[in-house]
């Protein structure tokens, strides 16, 4: 039996998210100004660590992930096989119907991640991850915006953490497409990554 908590990080939404959470068994953290997804994840990580979490699962709020996948992604951690588990939409063909442009951006992204010193993964940027407490203690995200996904890979390498990719489903609804990354965002991420490497 395991106890779990759902933590929501409200990254400076104009309408505070907790107005929609009344009576729900969730914990809500609110940034007073919008900082970006990377910052929101780090806030969530720090809170989870403070609460004594053994495993942390990150789950994007735009409906692209499937709750059942949490079980598969957490399993290697519970079995003590690895320290970080990363979701991938490309490991099993046909599970996720990825739009062509998105696929191309992610293909380039995984090579960029590899070139800049992360591991060579099948998926460059997947919001579904599971992190053990030991890894949580070591990993710290300083990239406030979307470059955090690559930074996590750099951190995994830097601290020599063991990791594994696990196939997960990514749903492309109209809403998640609207919220997702485009080619232009890819260039922004690249820019952030170059700055990250320059000033550190």
């Amino acid at each position: 039996m395991y106890e779990y908590r759902i933590v929501i990080v409200d990254d400076g939404s104009i309408i505070p998210v907790n107005t929609f959470l009344v009576g729900l068994p969730v914990y809500c953290l609110r940034h007073r100004v919008n900082l970006g997804q990377g910052a929101a994840l780090e806030t969530g990580f720090q809170y989870a660590f403070k609460c004594g979490a053994d495993i942390v699962v990150t789950f994007d709020g735009d409906g692209q992930h499937v709750a059942e996948d949490v079980r598969t992604i957490v399993k290697p951690l519970m079995d003590g096989e690895v320290e970080v588990v990363l979701g991938s939409r490309f490991l099993e063909d046909g599970v996720s119907e990825v739009p062509v442009v998105r696929k191309m951006v992610l293909r380039i992204g995984r090579l960029v991640n590899f070139a800049l010193g992360g591991g060579l993964l099948s998926d460059a940027h997947n919001g579904l991850r599971a992190v053990s407490r030991e890894a949580l203690e070591k990993i710290s995200i300083t990239e406030n915006r979307m470059a955090h996904a690559s930074e996590i890979l750099f951190e995994i390498k830097r601290h020599r953490l063991s990791y594994r990719e696990v196939p997960v489903t990514v749903n492309y609804t109209d809403y998640s497409r609207q919220k997702g990354q485009s080619g232009v965002d890819g260039i922004k991420i690249l820019f952030d990554l170059v700055l990250h490497k320059l000033f550190r």
């Binding site: 990080v9 914990y27 953290l29 940034h31 910052a39 806030t43 720090q46 809170y47």
Partner: peptide, 11 residues
């Protein structure tokens, strides 16, 4: 901002 968020965490 993070410190503020963590301090005000609704539980």
């Amino acid at each position: 901002v993070r410190e503020d968020a963590l301090n005000k965490a609704a539980t």
